[in-house]
């Protein structure tokens, strides 16, 4: 029997009829075609599938679909507002923070959650906040640079609104 799921995805209400054994990751990618959320292990070991669940960054590969009912999910597709990229996205694109781009959605989610909570984090704090996301391309330096640059941009009122 399928599970009927009502929840909010990227600010819009979504209804889906899903295989009840699926995780949130599978529902997002396979039932809602939101393939921006990636997966590298499905065991909580890489961070690629991070999404915001009720504003908290979590690993969608470990969330059973039953527990999403009535909750709010934000994926990388939801970072763009009215066709404008989030300053994090702009800075990631400009400064080489995304090479192959596969870990990027998860890292953007974790970085957004950090900046939402702490608008002016130190480089050490950024490192710590992103330490649940593996990147195999960049060596992380340009990601840290991009997050720092986006802090400046956000501070200058350069948000999307």
């Amino acid at each position: 029997m399928k599970l009927r799921l009502n929840f909010s995805v990227n600010g819009e209400s979504a209804e889906a009829l899903v295989d009840p054994d699926k995780t949130l990751l599978e529902v997002l990618r396979e039932d809602l075609q939101l393939t921006g959320t990636k997966h590298g292990c499905e065991l909580g070991e890489c961070g690629a599938c991070a999404v915001l669940l009720d504003d908290q960054p979590v690993l969608s590969c470990l969330v059973v679909s039953h527990e999403c009912e009535g909750r709010s999910v934000v994926t990388v597709e939801g970072l763009t507002v009215d066709g404008r990229l989030h300053p994090l996205q702009e800075c990631f694109a400009d400064l080489g923070a995304s090479q192959c781009g596969y870990c990027t959605p998860g890292i953007l989610i974790a970085a957004k959650a950090l900046l939402d909570r702490e608008p002016n984090p130190s480089r050490d704090l950024i490192r710590e906040a992103l330490s649940g996301n593996l990147c195999r391309c960049t060596g992380y330096q340009q990601i840290l640079d991009a997050v720092e640059a986006s802090i400046v941009r956000l501070g200058e009122g350069g948000d999307q609104k």
Binding site: G47, L59, V63, A110, G132
Partner: peptide, 9 residues
């Protein structure tokens, strides 16, 4: 423990 994301869960 684990990572910030896993600690959120």
């Amino acid at each position: 423990i684990a990572t910030p994301l896993l600690r959120n869960m």
